[in-house]
């Protein structure tokens, strides 16, 4: 509990619920309060009940626990059925990770609205990338850079960029930036956490840098967003447009779920027509030219 109090650091109110029955009763009511729980204290049955309640009344969930069999059994259930973000104890900087998890919790309604608008584009992506991106939007956690994302989905960066472009998205970087924005949206619109703190938690050097990103993606600054919040549907519309401003490219003839190591050069070896956006450099290495 001490860790959570330190992480919240006066930016919110903490209510402790020591009894699982009380917890389940509280979860049976609609609320968007963030739920921080220790999976080690839950049986798989209770974890299932919590997951069912959260499916009915979505709210942000942070699972903070040490590594143990009991914790992992419940964690797996929560990971599969809730938008829980996981912080395992035992690292030197766990405090900063917990702080980010607790203070930057995605807005469930905003994420749902955005994902529904991006659904058609996301469906054009291979399953590995699609699932990963959806998880990043829902949990506010995940690879924080395009390179990290390509490593997480076990695809070369260039291949992943091509899939993202083919699905009609502007760029991988913009997708990753959008996940940062959605994770900060709730803190900006429904809390009084100072902007400098939010910028620091997101890894921006200054509030101004964060504002520049918000202006690019949401046509508004963080200050204006706090004083005059956009309607969720409106914000989701703007962000969806910013993510897909380029027209959707023709659907690739490649299979929907190609082998993970598929590279344009393989197409050449098989003697098929070379995709227009691939040009060979002198070294023989393919280069994407969108």
């Amino acid at each position: 509990m001490g860790y959570v109090y330190a992480a919240v650091a006066g930016h919110g109110i903490i209510e402790s619920i020591p009894d699982t029955r009380q917890l389940l009763a509280a979860l049976a009511l609609p609320s968007d309060d963030c739920l921080v729980l220790d999976p080690a204290l839950l049986t798989p049955g209770i974890a299932q009940s919590i997951a069912a309640s959260i499916a009915q009344f979505p709210r942000p969930v942070v699972a903070f626990s040490s590594v143990s069999t009991a914790a992992l059994e419940s964690s797996v259930i929560l990971a599969q059925r809730t938008p829980a973000r996981f912080v395992f104890r035992g690292t030197a900087n766990e405090r900063s990770l917990l702080e980010r998890a607790v203070l930057l919790t995605p807005d469930a309604e905003f994420c749902a609205a955005l994902l529904s608008r991006l659904d058609a584009n996301l469906n054009l992506l291979p399953a590995a990338i699609r699932e990963r991106l959806v998880a990043m939007f829902r949990t506010g956690d995940g690879p924080d850079s395009p390179d990290g994302l390509s490593a997480a989905v076990s695809l070369p960066r260039r291949t992943m960029d091509r899939y993202i472009a083919d699905a009609g998205f502007v760029s991988t970087r913009r997708m990753v930036e959008a996940t940062h924005l959605t994770s900060a949206y709730r803190a900006i619109t429904r809390s009084r956490i100072p902007f400098t703190t939010i910028a620091s938690l997101l890894g921006y050097k200054s509030h101004r840098t964060m504002d520049a990103q918000f202006t690019l993606l949401l046509d508004t600054t963080t200050g204006r967003l706090r004083t005059r919040p956009l309607r969720v549907a409106e914000a989701a519309d703007i962000l969806a447009v910013r993510l897909t401003e380029r027209k959707t490219r023709r659907r690739s003839s490649a299979p929907r779920n190609p082998p993970e190591d598929a590279k344009p050069s393989l197409t050449l070896i098989q003697g098929r027509p070379r995709p227009r956006h691939v040009r060979l450099k002198a070294s023989g290495e393919p280069t994407t030219k969108p």
């Binding site: 992992l72 964690s75 990971a79 395992f88 035992g90």
Partner: peptide
């Protein structure tokens, strides 16, 4: 303990996170 959950939980990969943390 964490290694026994290595491939669990789909894209969130709690098993891997737990293994790396340990």
């Amino acid at each position: 303990c964490a290694l026994q959950f290595w491939e669990s939980a789909g894209p969130v990969r709690v098993g891997r996170k737990a293994t790396y943390t340990s």
